[in-house]
């Protein structure tokens, strides 16, 4: 679980800090929380939030705060909602992307970008779930 998580988040960090404004790390954290539901994800959210801020020359700690709150809200909702379904991923991706882009001052095309983030989030979720199933069968 930890290996998949670190590889996924590292790829997301490199892509998000280089060529796109889509919040890939946020989407990966959502998927990892939904699939694994481990408290270790708080550690990953903290570390990769710091790394993202360092790579993007933003105030360090800002993204970590957003990620921690986001992951905590998902954990709180897991007793009330079924979080390992695509429907939840769609809603959480969209709302999370809108909030993240707003807080980072990226107001332009925010709805369109959030819709695209949702599609990317769903893809990451499906691929991660398949990878985990394959590993479990092995």
């Amino acid at each position: 679980m930890k290996t998949i998580s670190v590889i996924l988040l590292t790829l997301a960090l490199i892509i998000e800090s280089t060529i796109t404004t889509i919040p890939l790390i946020l989407l990966c954290l959502l998927t990892l929380t939904a699939v694994f539901r481990e408290k270790f994800i708080f550690v990953l959210a903290f570390i990769f939030g710091l790394l993202l801020d360092l790579a993007m020359l933003k105030p360090v700690g800002f993204s970590s705060i957003i990620f921690e709150i986001y992951i905590f809200l998902i954990f709180m909702y897991q007793s009330k909602l079924e979080i390992t379904t695509s429907n939840f991923i769609i809603v959480a991706s969209f709302l999370g992307s809108v909030a993240f882009l707003l807080l980072n001052g990226l107001f332009r095309n925010i709805i369109l970008e959030s819709i695209v983030s949702t599609l990317v989030g769903i893809m990451i979720f499906i691929i991660t779930r398949r990878l985990v199933k394959v590993k479990t069968n092995d």
């Binding site: 903290f46 705060i65 921690e68 905590f72």
Partner: peptide, 14 residues
């Protein structure tokens, strides 16, 4: 877990 890392994040941000 949340409180520990949230407080750490806020401290590092400050």
């Amino acid at each position: 877990y949340f409180l520990i890392f949230f407080i750490l994040s806020v401290a590092i941000f400050a």
